Computed example of a mutant assay.
Amino acid sequence: MPICQNCGNKWTWKQTIKTIFKLRCPHCGQKQYESTSSRIRSGIFGLLPVMLLPVNAWLDFSVGMVLTMAVMLVLIILGFYPFILKLSNGEEPYW
Rank of each mutant, 00 (worst) to 15 (best):
C28E: 06
K14D: 10
C4H: 00
L23Y: 00
R24P: 00
M69T: 01
M65V: 13
P54G: 03
G90Q: 11
F61R: 07
L53F: 14
V55K: 02
Y81Q: 14
L53P: 00
L73P: 03
C4M: 06
P26I: 01
G43N: 07
A70S: 13
Q32T: 12
I76G: 02
M1W: 00
L47A: 08
Q30H: 10
S88N: 14
L67H: 08
L67Q: 12
N56S: 10
A70Y: 09
F21I: 13
S37G: 15
L59V: 10
M51S: 14
P49R: 05
F61D: 05
L73E: 07
K14V: 11
P2I: 04
G46P: 01
V63H: 09
I3F: 01
R24S: 13
G90P: 00
Q15E: 15
K10V: 13
K22I: 14
L87A: 12
N9Y: 07
L23G: 02
V71T: 13
L52D: 04
S37F: 07
L59T: 06
L52W: 00
F83M: 13
S35L: 09
M69W: 08
I77T: 04
K31D: 08
L47C: 08
S37W: 08
W58Y: 14
L78V: 10
L48W: 00
T68M: 14
F80Q: 07
P82E: 09
R24F: 03
P93H: 08
S62A: 11
E91M: 09
E92S: 09
T36W: 09
P2W: 02
Q32I: 05
G79V: 09
E34T: 11
P82F: 03
E91V: 10
R39M: 09
R39D: 06
K22L: 10
M69E: 06
R24Y: 08
L78T: 08
T68E: 09
T36Q: 14
S37N: 14
W13Q: 08
G64H: 02
C7N: 01
C28G: 04
G79P: 07
I44K: 01
V50A: 15
P2M: 04
K86W: 06
M65S: 11
S88F: 05
N56L: 08
R24A: 11
W58T: 13
Y33W: 09
P54C: 04
V63T: 14
C28W: 02
T19Y: 06
W11H: 03
L73W: 03
W58E: 12
N56R: 07
V63N: 12
K18G: 01
V50R: 00
F45N: 04
M51K: 00
F21Y: 13
L75D: 03
W95M: 12
L59I: 09
P2K: 02
L59C: 09
G90I: 12
